[in-house]
Design a protein around this nucleic acid. Structure first.
Length: 293
DNA sequence: ATCCAGGTTCGGG
DNA sequence: CCCGAACATGGA
């Protein structure tokens, strides 16, 4: 058992509200103030249970004995998952002059971006989520993970980890079709998988770049356009400037918050967001949160 | 039935 | 550079 200290500014309620939006999420399971998640590290399966206490996240191992190396990796993963190292007060300094952001900071005070620390998973998820509704996207992801991911059972429940690129490359066209992936998406998923098996991409390498360079590098991948690149920069790599302007969720949230008759167009979006420099990612995430009932 | 979903690529004006 | 079509499915 290990513990991770929570920062002063951490909104447990809103964090769980976000986590719970994915009733259809297959990669972790939420109940009460705890989250269970299966990790696969170097072929070893470790089923963890995170309990959110007042000042700590307590991590228990329900299955598998972690080495100190595993512990370190899992601790890092969780710190990234809940973005515990960001200085939120700096973000709020940026929000203050922008009325809707100021209001959202008040409503969701202490909410941190919930990330997808695994780069391969983040890229696949951004491809899966393109141009379809979220519920269908979750269905496709469930199909993929159940088909190729590692799993264990505990208290008669099954827990899955995201499949490795090697395992995804084993999946046939027919199986993908049965899993309701379009042929286009299968192509993109395979291209991304190959980048990983051939070690032509890594999180470390991208994090070494500045935002523009990292975005340009991601967009060179076929299947990763402006939206997906921004999504990964924000949800995985932790860049603060990522702004997926084409995102319909962002547009709908702005329509609501600004009481617009219609979703804002391209010029209007640029105007609205021109004074968001340096905290675009957090602005986007807070706007997404505002879409939850 | 029609339109829209957390888009991207490709070909054509 | 901008525009429309194709891609697959499901919910409103």
């Amino acid at each position: 058992m290990i513990k991770i200290r929570l920062p002063e500014l951490f909104n447990k309620t809103e964090t769980f509200r976000y986590l719970n939006r994915g009733k259809e999420e297959i990669l972790f399971r939420v109940s009460g103030n705890r989250v269970r998640k299966l990790f696969k590290i170097e072929n070893k399966l470790l089923l963890t249970q995170l309990t959110f206490e007042n000042q700590n996240i307590k991590i228990d191992f329900l299955q598998g004995i972690p080495s100190s190396h595993h512990l370190k990796l899992i601790e890092n993963h969780i710190v990234e998952w809940f973005d515990l190292n960001t200085d939120l007060s700096k973000i709020y300094d940026g929000f203050r002059p922008v009325e809707i952001l100021y209001n959202l900071a008040h409503t969701y005070h202490g909410l941190r971006i919930i990330k997808v620390p695994d780069l391969y998973e983040a890229l696949c998820w951004s491809i899966i989520g393109q141009q379809i509704n979220l519920s269908f996207a979750y269905q496709c992801k469930r199909n993929l993970v159940a088909e190729a991911g590692a799993y264990c059972t505990y208290e008669s429940e099954t827990f899955y980890s995201f499949p490795s690129p090697e395992d995804v490359l084993e999946i046939s066209d027919d199986t993908f079709r049965r899993m309701k992936f379009s042929s286009q998406k299968v192509k993109y998923i395979r291209i991304v998988s190959q980048l990983f098996t051939e070690k032509k991409i890594s999180k470390e390498q991208l994090l070494y770049m500045d935002y523009q360079k990292a975005k340009q590098t991601l967009k060179q991948i076929k299947g990763i356009g402006e939206w997906s690149a921004n999504y990964v920069l924000m949800r995985c790599l932790g860049y603060k400037q990522a702004l997926p302007l084409a995102d319909v969720g962002l547009q709908n949230a702005l329509k609501n918050q600004l009481n617009l008759a219609n979703k804002p167009g391209k010029e209007e979006l640029l105007l609205i967001t021109e004074n968001w420099k340096g905290f675009e990612s957090y602005a986007t995430f807070y706007l997404w949160q505002s879409l939850l009932v």
